[in-house]
Design a protein around this nucleic acid. Structure first.
Lengths: 333, 333
DNA sequence: AATCACATTGTAACCGTTTGCAGTTATGCA
DNA sequence: TGCATAACTGCAAACGGTTACAATGTGATT
């Protein structure tokens, strides 16, 4: 037995007004007599009327839905970002369509296509790699798109990030100052622009400033997870590194444990700084020193920015850089 | 300069066919001559036509969107569940609207209301607490709803879970068999049905079987996060417990580190078993023994179940129980 | 009492598809 | 060749709202 869906017509009939008036009441339009308003509201309550957002979206051309493309919800960094996005979205009465992209070009494209066809009012895009296919889709989109925790030095999408280059540079410098000659840089794939164009640069800058030669064998690429970090422990030793800056907490935890299991004492024999200061950083023993990022805020600010864009407001700054910091724990001396 | 949205009319005109035919082509309807089909597809390609999912949703009354209510994306357990859901949803060409509920009644209700008004084709609900308000909304919904990793012994919503009672019971028994007289049960709020009605029961059953008296002071409630676990370390010692079953990896990690920091050696002085076997379980030192749950699968199966329901297929089993296991690591002897 | 501005309400044209039904054309078979 | 049947295709009515614009009602003003 299908439930009878009750529409704005039903309400209008019962309340003896036109559907236009009901629509006004539902949308909080001021031009309705108080008395009428109450009458309509009573009927709405009695009938249990619930506006159909799809019809509304078609008629008004706004869906109060925004699309969020995320590499993987299961990655704590992005989950936290997503949380920031969702919270301010909710605050502005937007709902979120969440789509995992797995950093795969084809999936990203497909996902964007889907979102756009769903007529989302805007998109927050997270991804380490932005290629021409994506850029083309961005250009084709008729809604605003902002990048969160993701950079593209080519296109000029609005974005919210921290200064990755400086952050990594500072961490590297700290290690260098501690006397290390061979500090490794443990990163995700260098195919990802954010790693190659920003983080690696920071690492190299720091080396240059310290007058240390860049040695490619000290740059180790993993794929952001614990396991790959654990495996890199061996590589790091092969490379005779005595310290490392790691771009991601999970990999850092893996590296730390891998080293420890191999009998290397952190921080006495090896110092390590991680990048995200997620809760993982305090779960390991020793706890990990870390660059601190306002991850949640990155998402929140990105979403706030998107609301402005959707509202056709001018942006004071198009590419926002949030401040980062550093917290000293027990993986450094 | 607003971009011109191009509609099915435009395609129809260009291809010199009716919009009905275009619609058929787009939807893969078989009753279209191959030649016509190709002609239309060429025009679609040329014009860059992209069907408007909102209009489609209104006309067809199906949105190919499903709602997912999640306590918190940032909680790895639920994130993993969500990933399972999203993957099979994508497989069946559904998109997901993700809504964080924070386990708050009001937010949950509001979120359900939103989803329903968006005309989602179905809902996967995750939450530790299901009260009458929620149940009423469930009943009022005209789309299928399935519970994932969430139980309600009152209503009879379709659901996918593991046998929490048995799982916790087994873990408790293992500890009891190891000679412990005072094993603590570290849980989330007992206001949450899943804890009180299922997990606690398992703990109590195991005690009963072993002939050990139930001591309320050994039941410690936290709020699922690392910090609360860390604090519980002191309480556990106050209660003179020598072992613990913990319902959540983050709390377990907190407890473990709290204990270690207090000079208690795990597993020699204290044994501990956690519940989710998430990646956190292997990040701690010692690594944690854990009940194993097919978390991803819980989500995947729930979503698969939902597709059947949305398809009006009969369910062989309404309340699915997936198998759990146990993995021995270094927090037990 | 006539007039005017403003507050309120109603009318009806979309929004972009899907889909039942009817019409048209092609095909198979006696 | 004639006709039933199948394969295509088009027409037009929904789907459930929003929103210009028109219409009406109201009290104030002169």
């Amino acid at each position: 037995m299908e439930k009878q869906t009750i529409t704005i017509y039903d309400v209008a009939r019962e309340a003896k007004v036109s559907m236009a008036t009901v629509s006004r009441v539902v949308n909080g339009n001021a031009n309705v007599k108080q008395e009428t308003k109450e009458k309509v509201e009573a009927v709405i309550e009695r009938l249990g009327y619930r506006p159909n957002a799809v019809a509304r979206g078609l008629a008004s051309r706004r869906t109060t839905t925004i699309g969020v493309v995320i590499p993987d919800v299961t990655d704590h960094y992005f989950a936290e970002l997503a949380r920031g996005i969702d919270d301010v979205a909710a605050m502005y009465h937007y709902q979120i369509i969440l789509a995992n992209s797995d950093e795969s070009d084809t999936k990203e494209l497909q996902v964007l296509e889907n979102l756009l066809s769903k007529q989302v009012d805007g998109i927050v895009f997270m991804g380490n790699l932005i290629d021409d296919g994506i850029r083309k889709e961005f250009a084709r989109a008729d809604v605003p798109i902002v990048l969160a925790g993701s950079v593209d030095h080519v296109s000029e999408q609005p974005s919210v990030n921290i200064d990755y280059t400086t952050a990594i540079g500072e961490a590297t410098t700290k290690l260098l100052k501690n006397g290390h000659k061979r500090v490794a840089f443990v990163t995700g794939s260098l195919d990802h622009g954010i790693n190659r164009e920003f983080k690696l640069k920071g690492y190299m800058n720091a080396l240059a400033v310290a007058g240390v030669d860049y040695d490619e064998s000290l740059v180790l690429q993993g794929d952001y997870d614990y396991q790959s970090g654990y495996q890199i422990a061996a590589l790091v030793q092969d490379a005779k590194a005595t310290a490392a800056v790691v771009v991601n907490d999970e990999m850092a935890a893996g590296l730390l444990n891998g080293l420890t299991d191999a009998g290397v004492n952190v921080p006495d024999d090896f110092e390590l700084i991680t990048n995200n200061n997620s809760k993982i950083a305090v779960m390991t023993r020793p706890q990990m020193s870390s660059i601190t990022q306002p991850i949640y805020d990155l998402g929140a600010v990105a979403m706030r920015m998107l609301t402005k864009l959707m509202n056709h407001e001018e942006l004071a700054v198009k590419n926002i850089i949030l401040p980062h910091g550093y917290i000293d724990r027990d993986s450094t001396k």
